[in-house]
């Protein structure tokens, strides 16, 4: 798991609700099962216009200084829809390390935590205000996972919540599976009990 402690930089506003993973990375852009090469495909339907993949100059991430923004401010229910982890790979490979929104699609949020992108949930009115301010291209936010806090340039701070285990895994860059395998003894004991209690759940499906 990729480590992340703190992100500081320009925030790019993309403040519309229900941005789904089909928009973040459309199916037709997923041409191989690998994990690489998604950065250029991020938001392809908005980012490119016309033949030859010409950049659409109006799209926020095609404009300076947002082209290198490490923080995205998005509308409600960001990343809803398909479970495709390519959506997060595209965001990470573009260079975004934190997303601030009132709420996330549940699977997308879990995928963020496993790919070095910090999902930050703040109240809708705060997000709306930050998005409006970010339009100017000079909103620098500091997102701190250690303190679970987003700080505005004038020092105004907003706390956010992340699960304790996930926070630790991200702060330390720990391996999820290795952590669980430390509990193999408990897993084995559970399985033995469960096989006796619910044998039908263990009967291997017929071929």
């Amino acid at each position: 798991m990729e480590k992340l402690v703190r992100v500081e930089g320009i925030a790019a506003p993309l403040h519309r609700p229900n941005i789904d993973t089909d928009l973040i990375i459309p199916s037709r852009e997923i041409t191989s099962p690998g994990r690489e090469g998604y950065g250029e495909k991020l938001f392809a339907p908005w980012r490119y216009a016309g033949p030859g993949r010409r950049e659409n100059p109006d799209f926020v991430l095609n404009r300076e200084p947002f082209r290198r923004a490490p923080i995205l401010i998005a509308g409600d229910n960001f990343g809803c829809g398909s479970s495709r982890e390519m959506a997060v790979w595209a965001i990470r490979q573009f260079g975004i390390r934190a997303i601030v929104t009132p709420s996330f699609g549940a699977i997308f949020r879990a995928n963020c935590l496993r790919n070095g992108v910090l999902p930050v949930e703040l109240p809708a009115d705060v997000v709306a205000r930050l998005a409006a301010r970010a339009e100017g291209g000079d909103l620098v936010l500091a997102v701190d996972l250690e303190a679970c806090r987003v700080t505005e340039p004038d020092g105004t701070a907003h706390g956010f919540a992340v699960g304790e285990r996930e926070r630790e895994m991200m702060l330390e860059g720990l391996d999820d599976v290795a952590l669980t395998l430390r509990r193999q003894g408990e897993i084995d004991a559970f399985e033995a009990r469960d096989r006796a209690a619910r044998p039908w759940a263990w009967a291997p499906p017929r071929d």
């Binding site: 479970s83 549940a106 699977i107 995928n111 999820d176 599976v177």
Partner: peptide, 11 residues
């Protein structure tokens, strides 16, 4: 039943 990502799927 719930949907997960590929990395959680590895776990």
């Amino acid at each position: 039943a719930w949907g997960i990502g590929s990395t959680e799927g590895e776990h």
